[in-house]
Design a binder for these strands. Structure first.
Lengths: 329, 329
DNA sequence: CTGTTAGCGCGTTCAG
DNA sequence: CTGAACGCGCTAACAG
C-alpha cells in the first residue's frame, strides 16, 4: 500500500503539504501543488479513506437508510433506483455511503442507532421511504446529530433537507391531462395512505383540480395497495368516468378491475414505473425519476456538509403515457 | 464518543486488555473478562470500526459488487434480494459491506479497481451477476488479492468460493415434474445466454432428463430475454407439448405467446420470482431464495477470512407453482 | 508558504 | 495473565 508519505518523498515535500493539496487548502504555491500532483499521478496514489475518516472527525461518510417494502416488484424497482442513484452520485461526489435497510435497525432506540452509526464514522443520513409511523427516525432527525436529507418527507431544519417532487402540482397536472383528454366530469380518486407525507399533498392537488374544473369528486382510500384499489374500483368506478390513483400500483389494481368488469374508464397513476403484463392498455402517469431524486439528495447532503442550512428541494417530474411495449426486454 | 479508553478506565484495566476481550483473545482471566464486559455494557460502548480497520490491516470490510441489469422488474427483485440478504447477514456477522454497482467501476482496469477498493480498506468481495464478458473481474479474481465469494460463477481457488444452487439438478427436477404432470413427450427448451455460467448447467440438467425419459427435445436460445422467448414460443411451441425455460422472465414471454396463440402448453421457469399481471395462469418453477444465497455468500466470506480455502457451495432450492394470487398486495 | 508534531481509536508485540 | 508503548495513514494546529 502506497501512502501519503511516499508521495511526499517523491515530491520532496512534507506529508502535511500533500494533505493540503489533497484537500484543496489555500496557501500552497502553484509550483509545489503541481509537483505533488505529479507525484500522486506517477505513484497512482489513492488516499486511504479509512485513515482520513479516523483523523478528520468530519468526514463525508453517510448512511443510506432505506425502507424495504418487500414483495412488490413495483416497489423493488423504485427502491433499487434510489440505491443506484445515491451510490453513483456519492461516488462522483467523493462521499462514502453505506446502505442500511430499516429492518436492520428498527428494533433500536434513537440513541442506539446514533451510537451504532457514529461507531461507523457516519455523520450524514439519507432516508428513503420513511413513514409517519417511524417515530424513532423522527426523533433521530430532531436530535440534529446527523446531517440528514429526507426523500418525500417534509421535515426541514438547520441540518435536515427534503428532496421530493411537487406532489400537489404533479397530481394536479396528470389528473388534469387525463380529465381533459377524456372530457370527464366525475372522478374517482383513490388516495394513498391517509395522513401520509405525500398522500396529503397529492390529494390537495386533486382537490384543487376538482374545484377549478367543477368536477364531481369521490375520494376513497386505497392505502397504496393494489388489492384495495381493485376493490374500490369494482365498487365505485362504474358510476364515474375517470379513475385517478395516487400510485401506479393502485392504478394497476383499478385497471385490472375495469378489465374484469369489461368497462373502459381512463385511469391515471403516479410513479412512472415499468408495468409488466399490462397488455394492450395505456395510462397517464407522473414519471418520477427516482435515480435523479437520490442523486439530488446526495448533492443536498454535500451542501449540508459544506455548512448550508437545510431546505426544501423540488425535483423535476414529467407526464408520460405508459404502454405495454415499454417493458418487453 | 466513548472509546476503548473509557471502558478500560471503568473496568480498571489497560486498553489492550479490553481489546483482547473484544476480539476473543486467550489468556484473559474470566474475572477481568467479566469486568470488562460489564463496563462495556454500562457505557454502551460500541467499538469504532474505522479505527479498528485502520489498525488491524486485516479487517472484515468487504464490497458487494452487483451487476445491475436495470429495466426489468424481474431482475430488480432478484438484485434487491441479493443486496438485502448480503447486508443483513453482514450486519449479523459483524462484517462491514459497502455496495458497489459494476457500472460504477467497469471502466477501470483490475489494478485501478484493486487500488480503489484497498483505499477503502476493503479486503473481501462478494460478486453477483458476473458474466463471462467481465474479463477485468476475472483478472481481479485470479490476482487473489481479495477474499472473494462468487454467486452463480464457478471459479474456485484458494481464496475464492462459489455459492449457487445446483442448476443442473434443479433444472432436471422442475422439468421432470412438469413433464410427468402433463405426460409430455416432446419438449421445447428455451435456454439462457449460451456459454453463460449457469445456462450450461441448466441445459445439462435438461438433456439428462430428456435422455432418461426418452423425450424429443428441441433447444432454442432465448438469451434470457422475454422478447426472444416469446418469439421462439410463437415459432416452435405449437408442435411440442411442453415448454421449459431457463428463467422465469423467458417463461413469461413464452406464456404470453401461448395465450396470444390461444393454445395451452405447460410452461416451467426458473427463479421463483413474483409475477405480476399474470392472471389466471400457473406454472412450475424453481424457487431460488436469493436472500438466502446472499446470506450464504457472506458466511462463506467469513470462512475465507478465517483462513479456510475457497470451495463450491450449493444452496437449497425448491419447486413451486406460481399463481397470480401470489402477487396481490 | 512549508515542515514538525501531536493525536484520531484501536490492534499488537513484548516485557513484566 | 496484564499493561506500556508503538504504529496504522491521515488531518490539523502550530512553528518556522
Amino acid at each position: 500500500m502506497i501512502s501519503i508519505r511516499d508521495v511526499a518523498e517523491r515530491a520532496g515535500v512534507a506529508i502535511s503539504t500533500v494533505s493540503k493539496v489533497l484537500n484543496n487548502y489555500p496557501y500552497v504555491s502553484e509550483d509545489t501543488k503541481r509537483r505533488v500532483r505529479d507525484a500522486i499521478h506517477e505513484l497512482n496514489y489513492i488516499p486511504n479513506t479509512i485513515a482520513a475518516a479516523l483523523s478528520s472527525k468530519q468526514t463525508a461518510r453517510a448512511a443510506l437508510l432505506i425502507n424495504l417494502n418487500t414483495g412488490t416488484q413495483v416497489i423493488d424497482e423504485i427502491t433499487l433506483q434510489y440505491i443506484h442513484g445515491a451510490l453513483s452520485a456519492a461516488r462522483e461526489a467523493d462521499i462514502e455511503i453505506i446502505t442500511i435497510f430499516l429492518s436492520m435497525i428498527n428494533h433500536m432506540t434513537p440513541e442506539e442507532i446514533t451510537r451504532y452509526l457514529q461507531s461507523q464514522g457516519i455523520s450524514g443520513l439519507i432516508i428513503c421511504g420513511m413513514t409517519k409511523d417511524d417515530k424513532y427516525l423522527k426523533q433521530l432527525i430532531d436530535s440534529r446529530v446527523f446531517k440528514t436529507v429526507l426523500v418525500d418527507v417534509p421535515l426541514v431544519n438547520e441540518n435536515t433537507s427534503t428532496v421530493w417532487v411537487n406532489n400537489a402540482q404533479a397530481q394536479y397536472d396528470v389528473a388534469k391531462k387525463t380529465v381533459l383528454e377524456n372530457k370527464s366530469r366525475s372522478v374517482l380518486y383513490i388516495e394513498g395512505k391517509r395522513n401520509g407525507y405525500v398522500s396529503d399533498e397529492r390529494l390537495r392537488g386533486m382537490k384543487r383540480l376538482a374545484e377549478e374544473l367543477k368536477l364531481k369528486l369521490l375520494v376513497r382510500n386505497g392505502e397504496f395497495s393494489e388489492l384495495k384499489a381493485r376493490e374500490i374500483a369494482f365498487r365505485y368506478a362504474k358510476n364515474r368516468d375517470a379513475v385517478v390513483c395516487a400510485s401506479d400500483l393502485m392504478a394497476i389494481g383499478a385497471m385490472n378491475a375495469l378489465i374484469e368488469m369489461d368497462i373502459f374508464r381512463p385511469v391515471c397513476g403516479f410513479d412512472g414505473i415499468t408495468l409488466m403484463g399490462y397488455v394492450g392498455k395505456q395510462m397517464n402517469t407522473v414519471r418520477q425519476d427516482f435515480y435523479n431524486i437520490a442523486s439530488t439528495a446526495v448533492a443536498e447532503l454535500k451542501l449540508l456538509y459544506e455548512g448550508n442550512e437545510g431546505r426544501n428541494v423540488y425535483t423535476k417530474h414529467e407526464l408520460v403515457k405508459l404502454y405495454y411495449k415499454d417493458v418487453i426486454v
